[in-house]
Every structure is written in C-alpha cells, then in structure tokens.
Design a binder for these strands. Structure first.
Ligand SMILES: [Mn+2]
Ligand SMILES: [Mn+2]
Ligand SMILES: [Zn+2]
Ligand SMILES: [Zn+2]
Lengths: 153, 153
DNA sequence: GTTGGTAATGGGAATCACTACCAATAAGGG
DNA sequence: CCCTTATTGGTAGTGATTCCCATTACCAAC
C-alpha cells in the first residue's frame, strides 16, 4: 500500500478527532501526483487501481472533509462536475488562477503577473471589506475565452 | 399579459430565426425586475404567478438560449444550482462582481474600485493572451468570505 | 490482549438539478 | 388567413452527489 512519492499528512489529522485512513491517503496521493483538475469520478478511478475496495461514497465524503480541512480546493467550473486540486500551499503549483476555454472546457493554470494581482487585490479587498463589512478570506479570478487549439478550428 | 416595466426585446430576436414568445418575454421580465441572482426554479416560480402554463423545460431551454444570445449570464457559485442575471449592458447594475458568503451563500453585487480592476485586467489579459495564445473574452472575479450577519453569529 | 466507544467505510437507495424526446401549439412572414 | 417552422410543455430519463445503515477499523483504557 505504501507507494512512491507519497506525503505524510499525519500532522494535519492529529488533534482534530480525524484519522488518517487508507482512502484519505490514497485520495491525497492521487491529487499530489497530478497536474490536472480531477473530478470525484476521476479520483475514484485512479484510487481504484491500487485500492479496489474504495467506494464512491467514501470519495465524496472525504473530498468534502479535505476541503473543510483546507488541504484541497473545490472548483465549480460549471461543466457539470466539481473539480479538485491540492491547496496552494501543498501543491507544487503554488498560488495560481485559471484560464478556462469556453469551447473545449480545458482549464489552464497560470501564475504569471502575480505582482499586478497582489497590487489589485490589496487595495480592492481593503476597500470592499470596509464598505460591505465583509471579511474576505479568499478570491476567485479566472479568465474565459478560446484556447489555442480551439481557435484553429 | 402585458405588464408594467416590461422591456421590448424584439430587436434582439429579429433576423436570427428566433421568435419572441410569451415564455421568453416572461423570463426576461422576471430577470429585469429583480436585483437578485435567480435560479431556474426561482424564475419558474416567478413566471408561474402570471403565466401558469409555463413548463420547467421551457425555462431551462430558454435560459440556455438567452445565455447564448448574451442577454443573460449564468453563474455557477457552486451551491448546487446555477444562477442567472441580465447581462451588464441590459441591467441597471452595469458591470459588477460578487462577494460570496461561505456560510450563508449570500451573493452581494459590487461595482466599486472598477478603476483598479480595469488597470489590473488590462495588463494581465494582454500578458496572458500572449503567453498562452488564449483569446480572452471574459473574466470572473469574486471574493469569498464571511458576510456581516454571519460574522455576528 | 481484550473491551468499548467513536470514526470511517462502502453498498444501495434516494435526491436533485438538468436533458432528451415528442406530439401538440403558436409565431409571424407572405 | 395560411403555411412553415420555431417553440412549447409533459413525461421519462441522466448523471452527479447525498442519505442511510449495517459493518469495520482504530485507539485508548482496562
Ligand atoms: Mn488549478
Ligand atoms: Mn450579480
Ligand atoms: Zn479549447
Ligand atoms: Zn453570510
């Protein structure tokens, strides 16, 4: 069951009443070994290969838990199924946002121009939280359009 | 069937093979008379009050059409059902973005600090489209956090 | 090592938003 | 008014996600 490249998440589960289990380790492994944005079904399929006892219910339940624990993030790109990624701090990608193709639904990660972004966010978040008494904890920035391949057709 | 405040959309349907029908007018009316972000079900309920023949299927079908025609916009906030709004140019709100409360799922419109946004978008979009050969047509910006009421509990 | 309590699992049924299908209806140009 | 064709609305799916519940894994205390 122990495989290559797998990370130790014990610390994150200590003291909060949760246990590190095989399914949880497996789900985190799968998410840690890909660059893609995986759906619950994708994750189920991938985990199934080395842990065929896994149940779909367990995948969904644990995805929810891991989101609550902020180990992973859930995205609703509006393509029918939710997608999941490791949180910035646990991912090699680090803080990034998405380009989403309206035609083929491809999602491209980018982390360019973060300086401009930080400048923009700093002033905007401050202003908004004062005006609307809203405690901002997170932001979602994405650009929609047509990807390179799709623009050729 | 003709009611107050209703707008003439004839022009938008001319010449493209589409017809202006009662359900379409009704859906646009409902969206034109609210400040909220309505789901298909919300719209069905609202239309039902003055046009009880309306069918859920027709609502879904026309929402899709109206999105294609760019008269309305669809948002997937990840709360289970999609929400719809008039497009910026047809809405009193104009161009705006959203604050989304993680606790109560409330969505607040804002259009403050658009100068900062424009500055940020201009440089970022230009850079991204060059690097990724991606033709950007639209953007999605939203801030997540805890709204005023929810922070009191 | 055994026990007891709680966390976690996984299979199947149930939900819920949304779609496909199709016969019946109604725009709207001529 | 007529005809063509877009559109409607009911019913029966679909597909993703959640609920329920009996069984199992884990862990700390005897
Ligand atoms: Mn990503
Ligand atoms: Mn809005
Ligand atoms: Zn594409
Ligand atoms: Zn709230």
């Amino acid at each position: 069951m122990r495989r290559h490249g797998q990370r130790h998440w014990g610390g994150e589960f200590k003291g909060c009443g949760y246990r590190m289990t095989k399914p949880r380790q497996a789900i985190l492994d799968v998410l840690g070994e890909t660059d893609e944005h995986l759906s619950a079904e994708d994750i189920y399929q991938a985990v199934y290969k080395f842990y065929p006892n896994i149940g779909m219910t367990t995948v969904y339940r644990n995805l929810e838990l891991l989101v609550d624990m902020s180990l992973i993030v859930r995205f609703d790109f509006g393509h029918g199924r939710a997608k999941y990624e490791l949180t910035d701090q646990y991912s090699e990608k680090g803080h990034h946002h998405h380009l989403v193709c309206k035609k083929c639904n491809k999602v491209i990660d980018y982390s360019d121009f973060m300086n401009d972004e930080v400048k923009f966010l700093k002033s905007t978040e401050k202003g908004l939280s004062e005006i609307y008494k809203f405690r901002i904890t997170d932001h979602l920035i994405q650009f929609l359009g047509i990807c390179e391949e799709c623009s050729k057709k």
